[in-house]
Design a protein around this nucleic acid. Structure first.
Lengths: 179, 179
DNA sequence: CTCATTTAGTCAAAGCTTTGATCACCCTGC
DNA sequence: GCAGGGTGATCAAAGCTTTGACTAAATGAG
């Protein structure tokens, strides 16, 4: 995990983490290098993972990662108000609104005015949308397995536990998480 | 970590993970639920973290998270060709090109034609850019500490180790990671 | 009942992202 | 020395993101 920092000419995306930590340690001795390493690593792992899933699974099928997230929420939590979709998928209401334009155009979801609240819009998966998400999810899940197979079941459980602890602790520290 | 799945009306961004896993387990018994949980959790933790850092630290100072990433790379690895910045910051050359337009306009970085290769462009931090990134990084790092304080030092080390193992394993499995 | 406040959704502006041209330049082989 | 192929940067198109403004509808206080 901490190979000897390479010279700056030989760096790549991953080895840059070690290099950066060594350099910041010299430039700003007061910095918390462990916090820095953790955030940098977390971000790089997740970016690589999302990039891989999007480019290997979703874009070849003609959709985007955000579109997948919306379809996924609608698939599992049924017809929902746009506001609820935004909360569960972790995006703004405006983003859901824009995304639904695309999904509706492609025939995957529909927008209907809600019964009791005429401001609200209810989003529903079409049959085509349901078929699309179940098909896509299976390929998606196979790819997830390819990634997680690098860890034993015990390690996977430990990792999830630590991530849960991290996010619940963060909520307690009251950072601005929107969610 | 696995509270009893809530009814769909009471879900929020975090509890949706448990709900989704329970539901997929019923709908698609062949799915690997642990892989699903790991990816979902990893994505949600990282999104929350990035959103917090961006909205609490970077946007108030007038820059974006991607802009920070470019400045960070230039700060630590010195004047660099645009291509190298793209590799180290984990974005496309086109993205760097667009980002530098903004950074140059704001006086934080400069573009100069490279000596030996007149196609290439060398990116350099201005004094203002250097001051901006060192100031921003310290606030950034304090916020990183607020997050990571939820874990003990031992847990932090374990988490980084597991993330490293995950990404190195993923590279071995040859997914499309770009990096 | 009515006026003020809150809330849902959409739009606009600005920025970042990607892929796929396109142009300029380097470099190797003949 | 020069043609062909490879490479660096930029641009264009399309999509997603955010915040903030705006409309319309629900709600609540008096």
């Amino acid at each position: 995990m901490t190979a000897r920092p390479a010279a700056s000419e030989n760096l790549d995306y991953l080895s840059f983490v070690d290099y950066a930590i060594a350099k910041v340690g010299r430039e700003l001795p007061a910095a918390d290098l462990m916090a820095m390493r953790l955030v940098l690593t977390l971000h790089r792992v997740t970016s690589s993972l999302v990039y891989d899933l999007e480019s290997a699974v979703h874009r070849p099928s003609g959709w985007s990662w955000p579109g997948f997230r919306v379809l996924f929420v609608l698939w599992l939590a049924g017809p929902l108000a746009a506001k609820r979709v935004a909360e569960l998928a972790g995006m703004s209401r405006a983003a859901v609104s824009a995304l639904i334009n695309t999904l509706e155009r492609d025939g995957l979801a529909t927008r209907t005015r809600a019964e009791h609240d005429r401001r609200a819009v209810t989003l529903t998966l079409t049959d085509a949308g349901h078929h699309a998400i179940t098909t896509a999810f299976q390929v998606h899940n196979e790819r997830e397995q390819a990634w997680t197979n690098a860890l034993s079941k015990t390690e996977q459980t430990t990792l999830v536990g630590l991530l849960d602890k991290l996010i619940h602790g963060a909520q307690a520290a009251a950072p601005k998480t929107r969610f």
